[in-house]
Design a protein around this nucleic acid. Structure first.
Lengths: 216, 216
DNA sequence: GTCTTCATCGAACGACGTTCTACTGTCGAA
DNA sequence: TTCGACAGTAGAACGTCGTTCGATGAAGAC
């Protein structure tokens, strides 16, 4: 079981979601496909378990983070740790928190985030919505990343900026009168950093949350 | 071409992403699979075009919305319209804005949102990040919705609350000392409404944005 | 020695995306 | 009228995938 999961994670790390097939996994483990079905009842469950296996490492990293006197700062720190881990493993975003029966680590991580909101002056509902919003920002941004690049991931690192500039240029070619915003944005988009984009979105949510916690 | 797209959208509406196959589409149109490949070069492109086809209707709805004197209120209105459309068609979230070369309507919608930020006192980068964050909240929440229910969608409407309560109960069975947050949340989760959850997340982001636009 | 249980294996099935070749109709040039 | 170019159509065929199933081994219990 343990071996199955680490092999599955290795396949996902090496070549992404599409590389994790029962045949490839069986070949890597030197067994037959039927054997894997003895440990796992479907591909969805395989994904769930592999995801939770990887989340385990994130969880310990989050648990080692020292707690400050500002719950919102702690939430930021946790969200960033989670996001960074998902940048390394874009496939994580697609299955994170999808089935907490199987994903015990994910649930613990969710709990960890939620505990910070317990230190804020909020209603239970507000707390629930706050954590959902934060997880949404992390997973939403990371999920985009995972599916963004079509085939350019196979080539060198340079292709990303080239890919973005090609897009930016096609945007600049649009009529400036009907697309004023896209024009203004094109340069930003060409040089944009996914992590900055995530941090900005997170900051907006956290600012809103702080406001909510401070106003009676 | 037009017929292909409307048939594709119909299939997606009736039974979700997995129902849109080249064979099913061909059968519905009374043609062969090869014919569809004459109009569209891959399944990704089919999804992109079908998505943009559906976004067209959303775009006109958004364009008919009257403009108020508060750009942030207008942003809220647009985001809600987009989200509501995606609740009807959860498959939309997975492909929205994925390839603006093909998705002209999506780009126009993006532009529409961006134009509201032009009325705010922000830097271009802040505008870019703001629109990305808002689209992220909409698409992120809607994407969750689309993949949330495993087989329960096949049955009646009652199964959703049953499904949620089963989860909530398994959460309540956890140790109260190590899972204080999950315990507090369980009731909220059992009765939670996806739209409310989205509105709360949106409100946090918009509050943060308003703060950002007001502080020099 | 036999029974039961845990575990392994890979052939086989059906569905999928995609490719390929053959076919039909239409229409301007000769 | 004939002919070839060309826009569309059609479906068999290929390889890959998730999943199922019955056969097979291994190892302790009685």
């Amino acid at each position: 079981m343990e071996a199955v999961l680490t092999a599955a994670v290795a396949l996902l790390d090496e070549a992404g979601q599409s590389a994790l097939t029962f045949r490839a996994l069986a070949a890597r483990l030197g067994t037959g496909v039927g054997t894997i079905y003895w440990y796992v009842s479907s591909k969805d469950e395989l994904f769930d378990r592999a995801t939770d296996h990887a989340v385990g490492a994130i969880l310990t990293a989050v648990e080692e983070q020292p707690q400050s006197d500002d719950p919102i700062a702690d939430l930021r720190e946790m969200a960033i740790t989670l996001f960074d881990a998902m940048m390394d493993r874009p496939w994580l975003a697609a299955y994170f928190m999808r089935n907490t029966d199987v994903q015990g680590h994910s649930l613990r991580l969710y709990e960890k985030l939620g505990q910070q909101t317990l230190r804020l002056d909020l209603t239970p509902r507000q707390r629930f919505h706050a954590v959902s919003a934060i997880v949404g920002v992390v997973v939403g941004t990371a999920a985009d990343l995972g599916a963004e690049l079509p085939q350019e991931v196979l080539n060198g690192e340079v292709n990303r900026v080239e890919y973005l500039s090609r897009y930016a240029e096609s945007w600049r070619r649009l009529d400036a009168a009907t697309f004023p915003f896209v024009h203004e944005i094109a340069d930003e988009f060409a040089e944009h950093d996914d992590r900055d984009q995530f941090l900005a979105a997170l900051e907006l949510t956290l600012a809103g949350l702080r406001l909510q916690a401070e106003t009676p």
